[in-house]
C-alpha cells in the first residue's frame, strides 16, 4: 500500500480546518434556528422549516450552484460583499466553510431542535416567576438542558462537513491547498490512472473519521441520558 502524498496530507489538514470552522459557525446559527422552530409560532413556519432542510433533499450540486449564484464574485450578495467589504468566498477555503455550513445545517438544527423540544416549558415558566427574563431563561435553563442535543448536533455536523463534496466542488472548485478537501482529493485521485491506492487510503480515512463521529455522538447522548436519570 502506498504512502500518502504530501498533497493528500494537506487535503486532510484543510478538511479538518474547514469542518472545525464550519461547526463553530454552524452551531450558534443552528441553535437560534432550532429555537425559532421549536418555540416560535408564526405564519410560514412550515416553509421556513422546509428551506432549512432543503439542502438535505436537493442534489448537492444544486446547493453549490445556488451558492455560486448568490455568493460568487458576480453573485447577488457576493458582488456587494466584494465591493464594500472586500470579502470573497468563491474559490477560497472560506467558501468551502460556507458550503459545509449550509450542508450540515439541517442535521445540526434537527438534533438541537429535538433537544429544545424535550425541555419542560414548565421549568421556563418557573424561571420567569423567579424574575428571569426571556434571555436569562434561555441561557440559564433552556440552553444548558439542550446541551446534549447541541453536542450531538455539533459532532454529526462536523462529520458531515468533513465529508462534504458536491456543493463544495461546485461552489469553490478543487484547488490544491485552498479548496481541495479529502472528498475532492479522493475524487481527483480516482480520476488519475495511478491514483487508485491513494483514493482507497483516503476513503478508509474518511470512513474512519465518519464512524468515529457517529460513535462519539452516541456516547455523548448515552452519557447525558445516564447523567440525567
Amino acid at each position: 500500500m502506498p504512502d500518502l502524498s504530501p498533497d493528500a496530507w494537506i487535503a486532510i489538514a484543510l478538511s479538518f480546518k474547514v469542518a472545525a470552522v464550519a461547526t463553530l459557525c454552524g452551531v450558534p446559527v443552528s441553535t437560534v434556528l432550532a429555537l425559532i422552530l421549536a418555540r416560535g409560532r408564526f405564519p410560514g413556519k412550515a416553509l421556513f422549516d422546509g428551506l432549512i432542510h432543503l439542502p438535505l433533499v436537493l442534489p448537492p450540486v444544486v446547493t453549490g450552484y445556488a451558492l455560486l449564484l448568490l455568493l460568487g464574485r458576480k453573485g447577488l450578495i457576493g458582488a456587494f460583499l466584494d465591493q464594500h467589504f472586500g470579502i470573497v468566498f468563491a474559490f477560497r477555503w472560506t467558501g468551502a466553510v460556507v458550503a459545509a455550513v449550509v450542508m450540515s445545517l439541517p442535521i445540526i438544527v434537527r438534533a438541537i431542535r429535538l433537544s429544545i423540544e424535550a425541555v419542560d416549558t414548565r421549568l421556563e415558566q418557573a424561571s420567569g416567576a423567579l424574575g428571569a427574563g426571556p434571555f436569562a431563561t434561555f441561557f440559564l435553563v433552556t440552553l444548558p438542558l439542550s446541551l446534549p442535543g447541541i453536542l450531538v448536533g455539533a459532532t454529526l455536523g462536523f462529520a458531515k462537513a468533513l465529508g462534504e463534496f458536491g456543493a463544495t466542488i461546485t461552489f469553490v472548485s478543487n484547488i490544491p491547498g485552498e479548496t481541495r478537501t479529502i472528498a475532492s482529493a479522493i475524487y481527483t485521485a480516482s480520476q488519475s490512472p495511478e491514483g487508485d491506492g491513494e483514493a482507497l487510503l483516503l476513503s478508509v480515512i474518511a470512513a474512519c473519521i465518519g464512524l468515529t463521529a457517529l460513535v462519539a455522538s452516541e456516547i455523548i447522548a448515552r452519557w447525558f441520558r445516564r447523567a440525567s436519570s
Binding site: 415558566q125 418557573a126 420567569g128 416567576a129 428571569a132 431563561t137
Partner: peptide, 9 residues
C-alpha cells in the same frame, strides 16, 4: 410580564 411582577409561584 411575569418576570417583572416579583410575584413568586
Amino acid at each position: 410580564p411575569p418576570y417583572r411582577r416579583r410575584i413568586g409561584v
